[in-house]
């Protein structure tokens, strides 16, 4: 069912990607100057989720493993930050990010050893079960994690203390923090682009397309899957760390497996067969959910219907469908 992967031409495809990426980056940088603060903050949420979905898609789109437990790594990142605030009285965003990366490396390395022994549905169930373990820990150990009340995270200081959020929180979040998220987002996208186009990324795609052949070519499947799991989880953990100051609070809800379902949802919405799919899917999903929640209390019904309709009629997602439409238009001329 998978399309043949075109031969990799690093210079050509990277140059083309840059031609698309630079104008988008400029547009994104203009957002806080044009849109009201609420619009910028909403987009910041979308960009944060895009980092998480990008990491998730390294497993689904490139390695062919559907994880239903990425909420765990998102939550590990978020709770690492919250616990650093609570116990170590840290306030620097850079230290938060480092702490979140260390925590998610530890957790994903351990979970990965268990999970990558399996594929397909069993991989999905196992990741789901392990994420539920973390969820119940966050839920039950309330003297550490705050239980259902969660943990509050104050406004951090950015760039090693150069920018502090002492003034109006809305202004800080919609400007300084937005740009911070944008920079991290840009770095993550560039890093992921390098990863998926590296020999390592090619090996992952080979595993996805034909495990047996990849093994015969000499790819150490188990180890490659484990590293992919690790990288994927760390990206999602980083997203969790960026999300916490934006939200101001972390609760066990983000560890629950239904949140993993949302990560899967956004990736499929954008299209998991393309690099940009999860990014676009996450941003669109963020708007979709925000408006659905504001529009009706039965937003789950709305989103569920969208998801079912999507997998029934548009399995390639937004990016795949747009690409097909574009190809048809070009063919007509």
């Amino acid at each position: 069912m998978s399309a043949p992967v075109p031969a990799f031409r690093p210079t050509a495809s990277s140059a083309r990607a840059l031609r698309v990426a630079v104008p988008i980056a400029v547009l994104l940088a203009l957002v806080p100057l044009v849109l009201p603060p609420y619009g910028a903050i909403l987009l910041a949420y979308g960009l944060v989720m895009a980092i998480g979905a990008l990491g998730f898609n390294l497993l689904l789109g490139y390695t062919g493993l559907l994880s239903f437990g990425h909420s765990a790594y998102f939550g590990v990142g978020a709770y690492a930050v919250a616990l650093m605030v609570k116990y170590l009285k840290v306030g620097s965003m850079e230290l938060f990010l480092i702490g979140a990366i260390v925590a998610s490396v530890l957790v994903t390395a351990l979970f990965g050893v268990v999970c990558v022994r399996y594929t397909t549905i069993f991989f999905g169930i196992l990741t789901l079960a392990l994420s539920q373990v973390l969820w119940s820990l966050a839920f039950k150990f309330f003297w550490v994690t705050g239980g259902t009340d969660g943990l509050r995270v104050p406004t951090p200081s950015l760039f090693g203390g150069l920018v502090t959020g002492t003034g109006d929180k809305t202004v800080f979040m919609s400007h300084a923090y937005y740009y911070y998220v944008l920079i991290v987002f840009g770095l993550c996208v560039a890093l992921m682009w390098v990863i998926v186009n590296s020999p390592f990324g090619m090996a992952l795609q080979a595993i996805r397309d034909n495990e047996t052949r990849a093994e015969f070519v000499g790819v150490r499947i188990w180890r490659y899957r484990w590293v992919a799991f690790l990288v994927s989880g760390v990206f999602t953990g980083l997203a969790g760390a960026l999300w916490v100051p934006l939200n101001g609070l972390t609760t066990p809800d983000i560890m629950h497996w239904t949140f993993s379902g949302e990560i899967v949802f956004m990736t499929v919405l954008g299209g998991f067969r393309s690099f940009a799919g999860p990014i676009i899917g996450a941003v669109v999903f963020n708007y979709l959910k925000t408006y659905a929640v504001g529009y009706t209390v039965y937003w789950q019904l709305l989103l569920g219907a969208v998801l079912v309709g999507l997998v029934l009629s548009l399995p390639t997602g937004i990016v795949g469908t747009a690409g097909r439409l574009l190809a048809r238009l070009q063919g007509r001329h």
Partner: peptide, 30 residues
């Protein structure tokens, strides 16, 4: 809902039933 998915990759079945989960949850609330 499920019959169209037997011939497709397993991921789509999980996604479709996850959508069904969200729908059923809210139908009961409704």
């Amino acid at each position: 809902l499920l019959r169209p998915f037997y011939k497709r990759a397993e991921e789509y079945q999980l996604l479709c039933t996850f959508g069904l989960l969200m729908i059923l949850e809210d139908v009961m609330r409704l």
